[in-house]
């Protein structure tokens, strides 16, 4: 049960609260829900950061990339044209988080900092080479999202550091995040895979592949990437990438699935992500698995 609470009005206020031991709460869709489920009690001291204007908004960076504020909601991400067009895998990921309420309340920052091995945006961010911008009273530092996520529920951020934004370098080509879905909505990733590819003429230039919910932290799969890079992106390469994803998986058995099924699905879902990423890079839009329209997810009206 939390004893103290501050609603930070400014960044320095938030950082001061963190420095004195408070935990940030953004949308609370992980933190408060986790406490209700009995996973972990609410921290004793909370600082609410939902009012920080500095952490909002999506902006173009000088280098052709995007800077996404930590408080940007999943709904805002899906609705943003640049995210949809250039970082489609990220839009795919945010589009399938929870329900429309979860997508409106849940933030990118909370998704990342919660560091669940099943979290949706991790794979895309890692494949895009995203960096986390962490700020504390002692200054700012940048950490690649791939290095930030160190294990289930663990990050490389210090407790006094606030994630203020995620920066994405310029991206070309196509990308996709796909997940195994038992129901059409309200699912949690049991198996997820991301692929981002660039083209060199008709051939695949570079490829990035990551698997989600299959290892204690979301990881890239170098064997899958090399199976694709420089190739024709045909069925053989896709198959090999899928097999590599399955080989890299360290699946567990639990109420959601057996290890065998998870491993088999790792290959299937990875193949789907790869196929869609290549198709998108080649300009096809009919393979877009973003499940709902932007109108539905809601454009930011702020």
């Amino acid at each position: 049960m939390s004893a103290t609470y501050t609603a930070a009005a400014t960044l320095p206020e938030a950082l001061a609260a963190l420095a004195s031991g408070a935990r940030p709460v953004a949308g609370g869709t992980d933190l408060v829900v986790g406490a209700r489920q009995g996973k972990a009690p609410l921290p004793d001291s909370l600082v609410a950061i939902h009012g920080l204007a500095e952490l909002r908004g999506i902006a173009e960076t000088g280098g052709g990339g995007l800077r996404i504020g930590a408080l940007v909601s999943h709904a805002d991400l899906v609705a943003h044209p640049a995210v949809r067009e250039r970082y489609t895998a990220l839009a795919d990921a945010s589009a399938i988080v929870g329900s429309h309420a979860t997508r409106h309340v849940g933030t990118l920052g909370g998704n990342v900092m919660n560091a669940s091995p099943a979290m949706e945006t991790g794979g895309p961010l890692i494949c895009f080479g995203a960096e986390a911008v962490l700020v504390s009273e002692s200054g700012e530092r940048r950490v690649a999202v791939a290095d930030l996520l160190t294990g289930p529920g663990r990050t490389a951020a210090r407790p006094d550091e606030l994630l203020v934004a995620i920066e994405l370098p310029a991206a070309a080509g196509g990308s996709c995040y796909a997940r195994l879905e038992y129901r059409r909505q309200m699912e949690i990733a049991v198996v997820g895979a991301t692929c981002a590819v660039t083209l060199e003429g008709a051939r695949i230039g570079s490829a990035r592949v990551a698997i989600t919910a299959l290892t204690p932290r979301i990881v890239r799969v170098p064997d899958a990437e090399s199976a694709l890079a420089g190739g024709d992106g045909g069925a053989g390469a896709v198959q090999a990438a899928g097999d590599a994803a399955a080989a890299a998986a360290q699946p567990i058995s639990d109420v959601r699935a057996s290890a065998d099924y998870r491993r088999a699905m790792a290959a299937v879902i990875a193949r789907r992500a790869v196929t869609a990423a290549i198709a998108r890079a080649r300009g096809s839009s009919d393979s877009v698995p973003i499940p709902a329209s932007p109108a539905l997810h809601g454009a930011d009206r702020d």
Partner: peptide, 16 residues
Amino acid sequence: QLNPYLLDYKLQTAAD
């Protein structure tokens, strides 16, 4: 019971 909660005891949603 290993799944006495609605995330893993799945009812059909309007979308299903």
